Computed example of a mutant assay.
Amino acid sequence: METILKAENVSKRFFKKQALRGINLELKAGRILGLMGPNGSGKTTLLKIAAGLQKPSSGNISVCGLNIGSETKALTALLPDRNTLPRWMTASDACSFYADYFDDFDSGKARDMLGFMKLGATEKVSAMSKGMIEKLNLTLTFSRKAKLFLLDEPLGGIDPVARERIVSAIIKTYSEDSSIIISTHLIHDIETMFDDVCFIKEGEIALYGEAEQLRSEHGVSIDQLYIKIFQDL
């Protein structure tokens, strides 16, 4: 099975703050990894390094056997933790923008996903709720033919109905040829889709392994395991 992402002793320092310390993980094709930890634990930093937006201070990270660079950016699709689309854009404008910017953008798939998400093509970002904007950004991300999808807090601050639609879209888009990393601290709603889980605490891996094996070993759900690990923070 192809290795999609491999991190080897990855550390990142911002001035006096050590954001990541010696991260080691490997993600195979066809698997969904839950990347979990409280705010400030290093989740977003790790995703940005994997996406090629930041460089590690030490260690190495690769996508499909290639060191992070221009080649891996074409294999990686990042859903950021905040909206970056201009408010004047319509959903259709956003799709056209992505089609111009990314060679692997599938406009037909984007149209289908807009329908699935119940988003109007002519609706402006300025008129959308937070949940609708999240669904639009997810549509744009998953309409690329990427090998690695990086989702940074895709469920944060949105209502349960939008959350369910987003979870359904993630499952619908799942492919055995690619892998997904979902950074979240809202675990209860989505832990059943995780093949692997990685708990990050203060920039270090506190626990990492197959989700089902960890449930069996500890006798609790992933959600309950999260509470055990981080209850003192």
Rank of each mutant, 00 (worst) to 15 (best):
F105P: 08
K109Q: 12
K130A: 10
S126M: 10
E134M: 13
D152A: 07
L151Y: 11
D152S: 07
G156R: 11
I171F: 01
S107D: 04
K145E: 14
N137R: 09
L136D: 00
G120P: 04
E153W: 07
I166W: 01
G157I: 02
L138T: 14
A146E: 03
F149P: 11
K124C: 06
A127R: 13
Y174P: 00
L119C: 12
T173G: 09
R163T: 14
S126I: 07
G120V: 05
R165E: 15
R163Q: 12
R144W: 10
T173S: 15
A110L: 05
L119N: 11
D152W: 02
S107Y: 09
M117V: 02
A162V: 03
I133Y: 04
I171Y: 01
L119H: 09
M132T: 08
M128A: 12
V167W: 04
E134P: 00
L138E: 11
G131W: 09
E123N: 11
E164C: 01
P160I: 13
L138H: 12
F142T: 13
R165T: 10
L148P: 01
D106R: 07
L150S: 02
F105D: 06
K109Y: 14
F149G: 10
K135Y: 01
I133E: 10
L140H: 04
P160V: 13
G120T: 07
R144L: 05
K172T: 05
K145S: 14
S129V: 12
K135T: 03
E134V: 03
G131E: 07
A127L: 10
D106T: 05
E134N: 13
I166C: 01
E164A: 11
L151V: 12
S168G: 09
G115Y: 08
G115W: 07
K172P: 00
P160S: 11
F116G: 11
K147L: 04
K109F: 12
G157M: 01
A110W: 04
D106V: 05
P160W: 10
A146R: 02
G156S: 15
S143G: 14
L148F: 04
R111Y: 08
L140R: 04
N137G: 03
A169Y: 00
I166N: 00
M117D: 01
K118A: 07
F149S: 09
L150N: 02
I171W: 00
M117F: 13
I158Q: 09
I158R: 08
I171H: 00
V161A: 04
S143L: 14
T139F: 00
M117L: 06
F142Y: 15
G120F: 09
E123K: 15
L136G: 00
E134A: 15
S126E: 14
R163S: 13
S168V: 00
M117N: 05
S129G: 11
L150P: 02
Y174S: 02
L114E: 08
V125K: 10
K109S: 08
K135H: 03
E153F: 06
E153R: 08
I133Q: 13
F105M: 06
F116A: 14
G115K: 15
A127Y: 12
G108N: 15
V161F: 06
V161E: 01
T139K: 03
L114D: 07
V161Y: 04
L114T: 06
N137A: 03
